[in-house]
């Protein structure tokens, strides 16, 4: 009975134990590969590549990211703080009691806003076209650039994270948000890898991420297509 079954082996051969072993090994490996392809590679446990952890808590990282050499080209002027400029524009229409002048002031503001929007759109176009080369992707990411990029992301998201301390629960909590940043810096994917259990904490973390987008383009380094980042928000310092 056993010998008959061995002879029906699709890999041929008269039941050679080495063939059986290799066949079994190959099946297992291809199955694992198939699972990897069907599930997005952003989940930590299913990622084959290295998983980096960047601890950014020292005072040196609080320094402006513009000082980082690897980020100088990423820090495009269009990404600088806009409200200051806008506030300056809106001063034009104040303290003008005459209706006609009011209208002209209003038109000035509208024009200023329209031109600002155009500039914003143009700068985003420039970012996506000029900064990112259309050549083949870099085969392996440069660790230093990844660290600098992460530092910039950390700084930007931290600045945009708003949460009054009084909304904190008693215990320490952590939320992890996974993001995928495209080659042009766009936020391609954002989702919770782990929720903290506190709705208001989780929502504030999600707002910080979405408000921080778009990010600087990858500028030809990294994996070429996108970069996956896990952002862990901790409550410990808040309490």
């Amino acid at each position: 009975m056993t010998s008959r079954m061995s002879q029906k082996n699709p890999f041929g051969g008269p039941g050679n134990p080495y063939n059986m072993f290799f066949a079994s090994l190959a099946m297992h490996v291809i199955l694992l590969a198939a699972i990897m392809i069907s599930v997005p590679g952003s989940t930590r446990q299913l990622t084959f590549g290295p998983s980096y952890t960047v601890a950014l808590v020292g005072p040196e990282v609080i320094a402006s990211p513009q000082n980082l050499p690897a980020l100088r080209d990423m820090m495009h002027p269009a990404l600088s703080d806009r409200p200051v400029i806008l506030k300056r524009d809106t001063h034009l229409s104040t303290k003008v009691p005459i209706v006609k002048q009011d209208d002209s002031g209003r038109q000035d503001i509208e024009k200023a806003i329209a031109s600002l929007r155009q500039k914003d759109a143009a700068s985003m176009d420039r970012d996506s076209t000029n900064k990112f080369p259309s050549g083949p992707p870099t085969p392996s990411p440069d660790q230093a650039k990844i660290n600098d990029y992460s530092r910039f992301i950390w700084n930007k998201i931290k600045k945009n994270w708003v949460l009054p301390p009084s909304l904190m629960p008693k215990e320490n909590i952590t939320a992890i948000i996974e993001v995928r940043i495209g080659a042009n810096g766009a936020l391609e994917h954002v989702a919770f890898e782990k929720k903290s259990g506190n709705r208001y904490f989780d929502e504030s973390a999600l707002r910080a991420v979405t408000k921080s987008a778009p990010f600087p383009p990858l500028s030809g380094w990294g994996t070429g297509r996108s970069i996956d980042i896990g952002i862990r928000f901790h409550s410990a310092e808040l309490r």
Binding site: M36, T47, G49, N160, V162, S204
Partner: peptide
């Protein structure tokens, strides 16, 4: 297949422990 997936495999974790504004 492993090579294809490796393109987007590298994942960085960033820790943020205090909000910028309260």
């Amino acid at each position: 297949f492993c090579g294809v997936n490796r393109d987007s495999a590298a994942k960085v974790y960033i820790d943020i422990d205090a909000p910028g504004f309260q």
